Amino acid sequence: MIPVLEIGGTHVTAALVDLPGRRVVHRTRSPLDPHGGAGDILGGVRRCAAGLPAPPGARWGVAVPGPFDYAKGVALFAGVGKFEALYGVDVRAALLGGLWQRPGDVVFLNDAHAFLAGEWTGGAAHGHRRAVGITLGTGVGSAFLADGLIREDGSGVPPGGRMDLTEVGGRPLEDTVSRRAILVRYGDPAADVRDIADRARAGEQRARRVLADALTALGAALGPRLAAFGATVLVVGGSMARSWDLVFPALRGGLASGGWVPDDGEPGDVVPDDVDRGDGSQRTDTPASPPGTTTGPRRVPAGTARHTRAVRPAGSAEDAALIGAARAAATA
């Protein structure tokens, strides 16, 4: 079993991963205050990890958002609205000396890279030679993968593989697609993105327009890059992706306008268990409806020829990131 940590914008998860079985077999999860002091943040990570029955001397994998010096394990958070108290802190040394299990080593990787590596290992990107992953939440995370390896340059790949560094209409992408951008455009300080999604499903045109404009713009920015990269699948994770009934139609339209026209689905495609169907419930074993309806992508019968361009929601972005972190620890 490989011990791993996944540090998000507001939480930390510690887990043991059975990599050959592609399973998360033990998990603890705790909140983190992204605006807290360095001691508070690192203390929260240590307390969460303390509940993990990991053997001393094990190599840990840690998925963490950027900016971060992953080779050295040093935090570089600045101007991103989270974890800024950690700027310049040697997180690797803090974990090597602060975890009671006393790791033998700690390997860091970008959380979006971990997510896509996990999806490629045994999730929605499995079987695809070229895949792209996007996480939608407080910001936009991205990863480009070819033949099992993360690519940070090459045809279609933005600098460092970071879509958040690209621009839409002369402004950073996250000024259009992010929790912050959507809330600013919607203009109701009492609403969160989930509230806006609920109002969109209820028929409120302003809510529908705000979400559709943001996701269409994301698709239009991604489309040319996916085409140039030769991607055959785009996997979408993050908190916003759980509203797949709203995300998929707008994103698909933007991708098509950007020159990467998705097929209708993949053999056996279904809406994952943690994705909203649009009626307040979660998916059961019933087949999902065709794209363009309010319930997301359809199930394509097994045995159908494999499509060449698929857009898939992640089954569990957290599980994928944990498995990807375990993969990085195992191959370091």
Rank of each mutant, 00 (worst) to 15 (best):
L226K: 05
L52H: 12
P67F: 09
D285A: 15
V74G: 09
D264W: 14
W100F: 14
G148C: 08
A49R: 08
L255A: 09
C48R: 06
R327T: 09
D69H: 10
G104A: 06
L222Q: 10
G51M: 10
A288V: 04
G265H: 03
W100S: 14
V235P: 11
V236N: 11
G280N: 03
Y70E: 03
V235C: 13
V89N: 10
H128W: 14
D213P: 02
D18A: 15
A71S: 13
A50E: 12
D269H: 11
A63M: 07
P65L: 12
D111Q: 07
G104Q: 02
P103A: 08
L16V: 04
D164R: 12
V236K: 11
A326L: 10
V12Y: 15
Q282R: 13
L42E: 08
M163W: 14
F68M: 04
V168Q: 12
A190S: 09
A310F: 14
D175Y: 10
G203C: 01
R92G: 04
A63L: 07
W244T: 01
G268S: 07
A207Y: 01
R242W: 09
D164G: 13
R23E: 06
L99E: 05
A310K: 03
G268R: 00
T176N: 12
R179D: 01
D285H: 15
G303L: 05
V247L: 13
P65A: 14
S142M: 02
A63W: 08
V210N: 06
T293V: 06
D40Y: 09
A143W: 10
T293D: 07
P56F: 12
A191M: 05
V184M: 13
G81I: 03
L95M: 10
V4G: 14
L42G: 07
F68A: 08
D192F: 06
A231C: 07
G160S: 07
R22D: 04
R27E: 11
D274G: 13
A58F: 13
L76A: 15
D279G: 11
D164Q: 09
M240Q: 10
T308A: 15
G169A: 03
A125H: 10
I196L: 01
L116M: 04
D153Y: 11
A131E: 00
A181S: 09
H11Y: 12
T121E: 15
